[in-house]
């Protein structure tokens, strides 16, 4: 495996991007698990096995335990036995982003929460997906024009499936999950690469203040250059 997605996602464009060439400081930021690497390898280089790999991946989308307000109640109920999200392999709500594949942004994202959400998103291992759940995270919802609410979560992280509703019914979440699974299964390699590139760390918001940076700088690239010059 000469090149893998995570290097592109890190924004490091070098001639040889083997993991062993990475500077020591960046090593712990590579979060692809061995299994993910295997699936990546299968779906990329062993083309006949790609559907199987994608099928495996799409049926084990583990969400992050992330709920910031009322929508989270519906997200909890979808994990209970009445709606039973485990029928679709997503019952394992992980409490750490390192083990999750999916963020269901269940709830209002305020400006104060935005830096934390971006950090969580960046800590997810590749491949990572986002379902924007509820009117609040799709457009701002009933907090439209509010001074403190991010008017749509796609302003700070890329979104795969939009799920409107206030709150959406649990069936809606299941539907969004099925749509996401369909997307995972049918995504071509080019689309996958493109998405991974788009999903590199989103730098629109300053980490400390929560305020957006108008001139978007590639900070990782900058850090790489600094490391090289040392």
């Amino acid at each position: 495996m000469s090149e893998s997605i995570e290097h592109k996602t890190m924004g490091i464009q070098g001639a040889n991007t083997d993991a062993s060439d990475l500077p020591h400081e960046l090593k712990d930021t590579i979060t692809l698990t061995t299994l993910d690497k295997a699936i990546d390898f299968l779906s990329t280089y062993v083309v006949p096995l790609a559907p199987i790999a994608k099928w495996a991946r799409s049926n084990s989308v583990w969400p992050l335990t992330f709920g910031t307000s009322c929508c989270a109640i519906e997200m909890m109920s979808v994990g209970m036995s009445a709606f039973d999200i485990s029928r679709f392999g997503s019952e394992v709500f992980r409490a750490t982003p390192r083990q999750a594949d999916l963020i269901i942004t269940a709830g209002t994202i305020t400006r104060k929460m935005a830096p934390a959400l971006i950090t969580l998103y960046e800590q997810l291992p590749e491949p990572k997906y986002v379902i924007a759940m509820g009117a609040c995270t799709v457009t701002g919802g009933m907090f439209n024009d509010s001074y403190s609410v991010v008017q749509g979560v796609d302003r700070i992280i890329p979104v795969d499936v939009y799920l409107p509703g206030c709150p959406p019914r649990p069936e809606g979440i299941l539907d969004a999950l099925l749509k996401l699974q369909q997307k995972i299964r049918t995504e071509s390699l080019i689309m996958q690469r493109k998405r991974a590139y788009n999903q590199r760390a989103v730098r629109y918001v300053d980490y400390d203040t929560g305020k957006p940076i108008d001139a978007v700088k590639d900070l990782v690239q900058q850090a790489k250059l600094e490391l090289e010059s040392n």
Binding site: Y147, S148, V150, Q151, I156, V205, P212, D214
Partner: peptide, 23 residues
């Protein structure tokens, strides 16, 4: 609000921030 917030939002003359997080 975040500790470095500018202005006092419930004042009558408050202007909400203009940036890429809203329209």
């Amino acid at each position: 609000n975040p500790w470095d917030w500018e202005g006092y939002p419930l004042r009558r003359d408050y202007k909400q921030p203009v940036d890429s997080l809203n329209d």
